[in-house]
Design a protein around this nucleic acid. Structure first.
Lengths: 168, 168
DNA sequence: TTGGAAAGTCAACAAGGCTGACATAAAATC
DNA sequence: GATTTTATGTCAGCCTTGTTGACTTTCCAA
C-alpha cells in the first residue's frame, strides 16, 4: 500500500505507510477526546451537553445568526437543533428575536448569562489549545492547521474560512 | 477579551490571540467531522455506528486484547461496550475466546468477515488522511502530530504511544 | 388570491452513552 | 478449604442527541 512518488520541488518524500496513517487516525481520536474533555466537565455542572456547547459557540461567533444558518454550520436537523435552542432560551442564555425583514426567521443572540457560560467554556478549551500550541511550537501549529484544513469536506472548509481567518 | 496584533510573517514567538485559538478550535471541530464522514457512510450500510467502528479498530490493532483492556482504551462503561460487542459477535465479525492463562478473561479477535469490514473502513479513512497529508506536506504532518499529542490527556497519550510509534 | 416554498415547532423513535443491581466463574488470599 | 476479589456478562432504566413525520406561520410569485 505504500504510496510514494514525491511531488516536485524541494519537499522531502512522504512515505505514507498504512502504519503511519493509522497513527494519524488514532492521534485524531485521542486528541479529540482531550479537546472536548474540559468543556464536557463544565457542561455537566449545568446539565448541558456538547450540542449546547456547539450552539453557544457558533451563536457567540456570529451574533444574530438565523436558525437556518446555524443548521448549515452544525450539520444537524432543525428538529435536533431546536430542542437544544429551546432549553437555552428557556434558561435565559439565548435570546431569539423575530426577523424584521423576514418574520419567518429567528435571529439568535447570547444574553449576558449566555456570554458568561461561553466565556467559561471557551477559556477552558483555549487553555488546553494554548498549552498544546506552546508545547509544539509555531511551526508545528502551522502544520497542524494545514492538515486539519485539508481533512475537511469542501463545504466544511468553506464554512471554516467564511468567518475571519485571523490573518494566518 | 484580548484581541490582537494580527501577527504576520515569520514567527519565532507565538502570538496566541484568542482569535487564533478560536480558529484552532473550530478547525478541530470541522476536521473531525470530515475525519468520521467516510466511515460513517459505510457503517450505515451495515447498520452499525461509530461505537462499532471503534471496537473493530482497536481489536484489529491489538488482536487478542481483553475486554478490560478495550474498556481502558475506549473510555466507556462495560455495559456500553458489551452491547456493541454482543452484536459484533452475533454477526460473526468478532470472536471471543476464553483465556488460557486466566479463564476469566475473554480475548477478542476479528474473524475474516470482521477483518474485511475493518479494511473497508480503514481504507476509506486512510484515503482521506493520505490526501490531507499529501496536500499539506511532510513538515506540516510532523507539526500536526506534535500538536495532537500535546492536546491529549496524559493517560490518552500513554495509550497512544503504547502501540508501536511507527518511527516518527 | 392562492399555492408552493421556507422557517420554525411539536411528537415520537433510535443509538449509544450512563448508573445500579446482580450472576457467574475463576483467581487470589487468608 | 473458605472467603474475597477480579473479569465478564446481563437486565432495567435513564439521558442526550441524532433521526423522520406532521404541522403552523410567513413570504413570495404566478
Amino acid at each position: 500500500m505504500a504510496q510514494g512518488t514525491p511531488g516536485a520541488g524541494g519537499e522531502s518524500l512522504l512515505f505514507l505507510t498504512d502504519e503511519q496513517l493509522r497513527k494519524g487516525i488514532e492521534a485524531m481520536f485521542f486528541a479529540y477526546r482531550g479537546f472536548t474533555a474540559d468543556p464536557d466537565r463544565i457542561l455537566q455542572r449545568y446539565d448541558y451537553g456538547r450540542a449546547h456547547h456547539r450552539a453557544i459557540h457558533f451563536i457567540h461567533r456570529s451574533q444574530g445568526t438565523t436558525v437556518n444558518n446555524l443548521l448549515g454550520i452544525l450539520g444537524v436537523t432543525k428538529q435536533s437543533l431546536n430542542r437544544v435552542l429551546r432549553t437555552l432560551i428557556r434558561d435565559g442564555l439565548v435570546d431569539s428575536r423575530v426577523g424584521s425583514r423576514d418574520r419567518r426567521e429567528r435571529h439568535l443572540f447570547l444574553t449576558e448569562k449566555g456570554e458568561a457560560l461561553e466565556r467559561e467554556l471557551s477559556e477552558a478549551q483555549r487553555r488546553r489549545m494554548r498549552a498544546a500550541y506552546r508545547a509544539a511550537g509555531p511551526q508545528a501549529v502551522a502544520g497542524f492547521r494545514q492538515v486539519l484544513e485539508a481533512m475537511m469536506d469542501p463545504d466544511q472548509r468553506r464554512q471554516f474560512r467564511a468567518k475571519g481567518d485571523g490573518g494566518q
